[in-house]
Design a protein around this nucleic acid. Structure first.
Lengths: 342, 342
DNA sequence: CATAGTACTGTAAACGTTAACAGAAACATT
DNA sequence: AATGTTTCTGTTAACGTTTACAGTACTATG
């Protein structure tokens, strides 16, 4: 392996000068720079990043910590994060952790091991682990929950208002004439739906709307938890049909789940939207191309990603305080919501 | 930051002993081990990986290099890779590169920067860069092309036989009674379809079957290139309808493309499968849940991932020669292929 | 009792880099 | 001519580990 020493020897300069050339320091003569660069190119020399990081005590990379299984909505956010970071000359490392792992503890471990200079969280619910979060001392961005209430100086958040988005979805169904509405959640564990949890926030929005219209809603019958995958959405919808057979509309807390539910509807002899209306959440491309086109509360994955990356980069470079911004959503009418038959 | 020195000081042992405790060396007394571990736990000490790697000259991690945009088939392979590696106590870092980047050159850069101990390639076509590949000296696995012909000692490959899979798809359509078959490809660039390219291999399989049945096939009219995304599939299908209006069946070189094509069919007034049959490739979960259920040549993402990881780990530990294995596929009949009307 | 072996422990030299510091040379200023 | 300043360069001490080597203190063996 060629090291900086070899370059120094071959170019006739000292390792100090070579290092300065590599790191674009100004105190280097034109001639030295030229000669050293020539040797570097000729030898195909690449600095050893471990040695570099050992000295500098941090990486040049930003880690994206994704909680839960591969999911196309997160996937598209990740893709946009990658694009944004690349444009700024930064490198993203994506790390997936299990749905049941504690993301904050995983993040701490990650910080120790790989020393990223910034962290982006996707999924999960930091609120539960606020105590541990205090141990993270690099800038963080949370893209799937609002963290303004947590009050950590190093934690920004950019996300849509889940409560408002869900309210609007249910409002949309009710205005279409539905009263028997089922809700398919995204939370894996029924017992787990506490404050800050994605299902909790979304259900809260739903219930407020039911209340506004004076429509009764019983969480025990009309809410089925699920997970962010099609098979899980399928199963949850089937369970819903069993539990609540005369349901006329489904609000699925993610498009993936909604697409699974569409198949479940077909398999249980329900035609969408004639027998069953469905509205999803996220606005993934797949839902846009489904037949019929899925109605959905659309989040702007690109905007969320861009805001998050921009904020992180600014805070990394100018130590600005953390920000919390609500990203607007919009309801795409689609083709899966229709006035109920009866 | 706590270092090994602090642990040594606090435990009353030397850094040598502490290091031996950390690395599970046998030459440590029970007492020393116990005491040192106690201090490590108490202090929450984490070894500095950069220092460790600087000494050991390689990472403990395996890098997955994914070419192209976020794509659910690759996504599910990645997920399985992650699972497999985690079970073996290994760590996976996923790196996405642009569709137009050269994956081998990217890999070389990656090796220099992060020093992974193994590399898994997803997507792309190493064949084009065989010359550069010789510069990579760590075990590699290619999961989307057969690399047996390349003859690199450090390159294994595990993938389905694209030629045979495509042949079977077309055979399936012809046996259903279709003669006017369009093929929607996965290759971004029409000029680019050369040997080793995924479209090249698949088209070859198709043409052989057309030939076998004595059905004419003109690549210029009946083949439209596309990319692995729904919008691209949609556009390509629309182009196909324009170019070849009386097409009765479509073979899409990926399910994502097929799902886009299904929407295109709907938008152009074609009912699937009554007016247009569609068969895809990959067998992603989404296609299984689509209505109607997509017919598809299913690849076993989990098996591909597992074989790849197993091979990599074995070669990492026992320096076995590289392997090349063809993973079987199977045609899922689905609901989108039907006898044509006329 | 001498010797050899065993079980453990400490020391110190690497690994490849950065950056603080000092020194040299050239030039400018008094 | 002496001094100060600027521009460049080399030297060297870290950074936090691992590991070869050398030791020490036992225990076992002849």
């Amino acid at each position: 392996m060629t090291t900086i020493k070899d370059i120094a020897r071959l170019s006739g300069y000292s390792i100090g000068t070579v290092s300065r050339v590599i790191n674009q320091h100004p105190d280097v003569s034109e001639e030295a720079r030229r000669k050293v660069e020539e040797v570097i190119r000729r030898e195909g020399y690449q600095p050893n990043s471990n040695a570099k990081l050992l000295k500098q005590r941090s990486t040049s990379s930003i880690t994206v910590l994704v909680k839960g299984r591969m999911n196309i909505f997160f996937g598209s956010i990740i893709e946009h994060i990658q694009t944004e970071l690349r444009e700024s000359g930064e490198e993203a490392i994506v790390e997936y952790i299990d749905d049941f792992d504690n993301e904050v503890l995983s993040a701490i471990q990650l910080c120790n091991e790989r020393k990223p200079k910034g962290l982006i969280f996707l999924g999960g619910n930091i609120e539960y682990f606020r105590k541990d979060f205090a141990r993270i001392d690099i800038p963080c961005v949370l893209l799937t929950n609002n963290a303004s209430s947590l009050g950590f100086a190093n934690l920004s958040s950019f996300c849509t208002d889940d409560t408002a988005g869900s309210a609007e979805a249910v409002d949309f169904l009710i205005r279409a004439g539905h009263k028997k509405i089922g809700i398919v959640g995204g939370s894996a564990d029924e017992d787990d739906v506490g404050e800050g949890h994605i299902d909790y926030e979304r259900l809260r929005g739903c219930e407020a709307v039911f209340h506004k219209y004076g429509i009764p809603f019983d969480r025990r019958y009309q809410y089925v938890p699920s997970r962010f995958s099609m098979p899980d959405g399928y199963d949850a919808a089937m369970k819903m049909f069993e539990r609540f057979p005369d349901v006329t509309a489904l609000f699925c807390l993610s498009d993936i789940i909604a697409l699974g539910a569409m198949r479940a509807a077909a398999d249980s002899g329900r035609k969408v939207p004639d027998d069953l209306s469905i509205i999803g959440y996220d606005g993934i491309p797949y839902s846009y191309y489904s037949v019929p086109r899925l109605s959905s509360v659309q989040q702007d994955a690109e905007l969320i990603a861009r805001k998050g990356v921009e904020d992180l980069l600014i805070r990394l470079n100018y130590s600005r305080p953390a920000q919390h911004e609500i990203i607007p959503f919009r309801v795409l009418a689609g083709e899966t919501v229709k006035k109920p038959k009866e």
